[in-house]
Design a protein around this nucleic acid. Structure first.
Lengths: 163, 163
DNA sequence: TATTGTTATACTCTATAACTATA
DNA sequence: TATAGTTATAGAGTATAACAATA
């Protein structure tokens, strides 16, 4: 493939990635009251990977721990997660999805499914599967990239803000 | 495909769409000073589709015209676009990419290309092409969806905030 | 001395609503 | 009366930096 064509392909990819925002805003508008999109992501990670600490959650979310801390406080205030002392480190607490959090996720799952089913009714299961696969690989590729090459502004590969 | 499996597929898609944010933040951190990610999207739309009015731009960006107005003012202050009176409607101005805006885009294109080339070096051109194609179709599917079924909170299919 | 997590502050992006100028 | 665009204000999300408690 010629260099110019590949460059154009990358530009087009960057452009299309930008349009995902609008789709996420659409999905977010359908969420229950008090349930932010950020809460949903956080809770679904806890459901998928089980009990974990803040630092692990921040890493999975790919956002700073200070931000994660606020999101965690938010969902904890609403009883959607439980925080237990970490027996191995008194500075940490282990975060776990609560029954009411699981219930909320089930509700959101229905909302998402209905919305996506309506919009993607012409898509085959293979199409949806391919998109999931490619997005997963894209995230992994960027994760590896970040781990190998630190950011220009001095951020390192962890989810920690340098003090 | 069984209903439960399809539901799980949609949930996974929603999750993977959420991770695109982190990738966009990564790309954004590499931009030149004073050049926001929003500016890049705006300018690249003007390059791709040519001269247009604010309302058209807001529609392409899928954001409210009030927000578009601020982004436009920002790039206009920096000389990256030119605003000419619309001969057909004195309320409107036609927006056009300026030479310095085109130069900026070329610079950003190089940055994006380098970053993506580094992260996606194991990807085939077909992989990148498939992802672009699926994201394009996803955006179109959601656009059609929005046009047919208004949002729950009363927003309509235009980019206009109801007064 | 380094690390886990919290909080205060600032910045970006978006939506709502009120306003103007023109159609 | 309706529409194109602007501006003020508020809210969600994130990053930086300073801090307390523990390792």
């Amino acid at each position: 493939m010629p260099v110019a064509a590949r460059r154009e392909q990358y530009e087009e990819l960057a452009r299309q990635l930008g349009t995902v925002d609008a789709i996420k805003r659409d999905l977010g508008r359908r969420l229950p009251v008090n349930c932010s999109p950020a809460s949903v992501v956080l809770l679904s990670l806890l459901r998928r990977y089980g009990e974990m600490r803040m630092s692990k959650l921040a890493e999975l979310l790919a956002i700073d721990m200070s931000v994660t801390s606020r999101h965690v406080a938010y969902v904890a205030e609403r009883g959607w997660i439980e925080r237990h002392p970490d027996p191995l480190d008194k500075r940490s607490r282990l975060l776990r999805l609560s029954p009411s959090g699981a219930e909320l996720l089930a509700q959101v799952s229905t909302l998402y499914t209905e919305t996506l089913a309506a919009c993607l009714k012409d898509w085959s299961a293979d199409d949806v599967g391919s998109l999931i696969d490619l997005l997963t690989r894209l995230r992994e590729a960027f994760g590896d990239c970040r781990a190998r090459a630190p950011q220009p502004h001095g951020a390192d590969s962890t989810a920690r803000t340098p003090a």
